[in-house]
Amino acid sequence: MDWLDLARAALLGILQGLTEFLPVSSTGHLLIAERAMGFEDPGGAFTVMIQLGSILAVMWLYRQRIWDVVTGLPTKPEARRFALMLFLAFLPAVAIGLLAADYVKTVLYESLTVIAWALIIGGVAMLGIERFRPTPQVEDAARTPIGRAVAVGVFQTLALIPGVSRSGATIYGGLLMGLDRRAAAEFSFFLAMPTMAAAFVHDFLDVKDHITPDRTAEIAVGFLFAFLSALVVVKPFLDFVTRIGFGPFAFYRIAAGAMVLGALAMGWL
């Protein structure tokens, strides 16, 4: 391993952290970037491990909320309701993930065409939802009605398709379920914690044998930069979508998907 390997690991870590909580598909961006860089990731070990950096970043940002919920479970009804809401919203991803994980990893992850079209279709869907979404009725993500929270969890299952975006799918679902922009984005962050933690544990068990000593430095660098970049992006993203909306991300998705299709047609990827 040389400095070039570490530099590529740092760039991929930054990309992971920046895109994980934006509605643009971190997995899609990583798979495209790894292919473009010629980055070898046997078993997907690097990708799995650096995602942990993003998970820990959002948990750090919401550490007070997490602490309040955990310590309040025995005595506070609102803490128990919050935990139940997230648990029920999390279940659809568990069920569909267990059924479809092998197909997603062995077939869909290998197709940049699927990723490109998912980016484009997701961008078009986002523009439509922004324009025709129902009048917001929920302004606090923590007070999302449980039925609506479960519906958002069902939308999250769409993110098994690489290029759809986990945060994008949950945000779309939140907007359609009557959450305002900030609440939809924040609910996506809350739901990311159990979902991404469970996905990490599941994937880690599959890839642990590929985490060899000679890859430790590469993984450590990617993890660190994923953590730092996610830490930087979450709060500004909330402020941005509250003021501007999701339109710029929709146009970005469409443009990125179109460029990938063009690059595939030219034989560049």
Rank of each mutant, 00 (worst) to 15 (best):
V232A: 15
I171P: 00
L56G: 00
A83G: 14
P162T: 01
V233T: 08
Y252Q: 10
T71P: 01
Q16N: 00
V221D: 02
V114L: 12
Y252C: 08
G17W: 01
G247A: 10
G17V: 03
R166E: 14
I129E: 11
G44M: 07
R148A: 14
A250G: 07
L224Q: 08
F237S: 06
T75P: 07
V260M: 04
A256E: 06
Y172R: 10
R35D: 08
L30W: 03
E130A: 10
D180F: 01
L108I: 13
V114S: 08
M177Q: 13
A101K: 14
V58H: 04
G247N: 11
L31T: 01
E40V: 14
V94F: 06
V94M: 09
G245W: 05
A149N: 11
F87W: 08
E78A: 09
I120H: 11
Y172E: 12
A10K: 01
R81Q: 13
A100L: 13
G247H: 10
R181G: 03
V107Y: 14
P236S: 09
I50M: 10
L264I: 09
M49F: 14
D206C: 10
P23T: 02
T195S: 15
K208T: 10
L112Q: 03
I219F: 00
E139A: 12
P23W: 00
R63C: 07
V221F: 02
Q51N: 12
T113M: 15
I120Y: 07
I129C: 08
R65F: 13
R253F: 05
I96K: 06
G122L: 02
E34C: 13
L18V: 06
L15M: 06
R215T: 08
Y109P: 11
L191H: 03
L4F: 15
V124D: 00
A95G: 14
D68I: 10
G222T: 02
Y103P: 06
V70L: 13
L84P: 05
V233R: 08
V154C: 11
G262S: 14
A116N: 09
F87N: 08
A198Y: 08
R80D: 04
R143E: 15
I146Y: 13
G123V: 11
S167G: 15
F87G: 04
S188Q: 07
R63E: 04
I66Q: 07
K105R: 15
W3D: 12
G147D: 13
M59S: 02
G153H: 02
A118P: 04
F240E: 12
F200G: 02
M49G: 12
L264F: 11
G13L: 03
G97F: 00
V48N: 00
G163I: 00
P42G: 11
M177Y: 09
L18K: 01
T75K: 10
G222W: 02
L175P: 03
L119F: 13
W60S: 12
V48S: 00
L176Q: 13
L158Y: 02
F227Y: 05
L228H: 06
F39W: 06
F90N: 10
T106K: 15
D214Q: 12
G262D: 12
A185G: 14
F46Q: 01
G267F: 05
D239G: 14
L127M: 12
V104D: 04
